[in-house]
């Protein structure tokens, strides 16, 4: 028999569901990866942290068009990133596309906030694999010292992309979709949250930005789904 689950682990009908854990470790393509409830993937072997779809400046874009959104969303996202880097002690941070939301969102306020954040994390290397929004909004301000790459970026063992692609021989991680999963009760009520969609050959990350929507996905046959509400990450059955 397998060893008992990690601390606080519980067994539910063959499913191992950790209790109140802010990360889950999975083994994927021969690598150990940690899925964090804060919507990031930690790859310990490479000392690497991956996040997708931050959409910085989205609130600013809205506000510029006269739609009132509280501005503190991006501030919060910066803090969350900082906290993740501190906890995982990584050397590099990779954004899987859609770093900035739109050209209209390149405001002084957003710039200053990101610059402050970058200064606090000056020790690590930061990369961006350009996504569709980045093409429209342009590369980040040079003083942020973010190295930009075209997808797929093949520096590491797996392809790092923004847009997921169809069946491929190269395992990859991507964003773009903003995946979410919906659990339905028999009574008809349902519960929807962002999720990691982990397939045999690809992982799709949830959108990192607070002010971003989610799209309910239909998992493929061999997909594993890890739902997160920002506090906890839980694997759920997909049938």
């Amino acid at each position: 028999m397998g060893r008992p689950g990690p601390k606080n682990g519980r067994n539910f009908g063959g499913l191992r569901l950790k209790h109140a854990s802010n990360s889950v470790e999975i083994s994927w393509q021969g690598e150990k990866l940690e899925l964090w409830s804060a919507k990031a993937i930690h790859w310990p072997a490479k000392k690497l942290l991956l996040v997708a779809d931050t959409h910085f400046g989205k609130a600013a874009t809205f506000r510029k068009s006269g739609i009132p959104v509280p501005e503190s969303t991006s501030q919060d996202d910066c803090h969350r990133l900082e906290e993740l880097v501190r906890q995982t002690k990584v050397d590099s941070l990779v954004f899987l596309g859609d770093f900035l939301h739109a050209r209209d969102g390149r405001t002084e306020g957003v710039h200053k906030e990101l610059l402050d954040w970058r200064k606090r994390l000056s020790r690590i290397a930061v990369h961006l694999v350009r996504g569709n929004h980045d093409l429209q909004s342009g590369d980040p301000w040079p003083d942020l010292e973010i190295q930009c790459h075209r997808e797929p970026w093949t520096e590491f063992k797996f392809d790092l992309r923004h847009h997921p692609v169809g069946p491929t021989a190269h395992p990859f991680m991507a964003g773009h979709i903003h995946p979410g999963f919906s659990l339905k009760e028999k009574s008809g009520s349902s519960l929807r949250s962002p999720c990691f969609q982990v397939g045999k050959n690809r992982i799709i990350l949830p959108a990192f930005g607070t002010f971003t929507g989610i799209k309910t996905v239909k998992p493929d046959r061999d997909d594993r789904i890890f739902m997160t509400d920002g506090q906890e990450v839980i694997e759920v059955p997909t049938y």
Partner: peptide
């Protein structure tokens, strides 16, 4: 319709078990 007063995590776990 089950009365649900639990936290997000409890609800997900419970629903997952029922599905299972």
């Amino acid at each position: 319709a089950q009365l649900s007063t639990e936290s997000w995590g409890d609800r997900v776990r419970k629903m997952a078990v029922i599905l299972e």
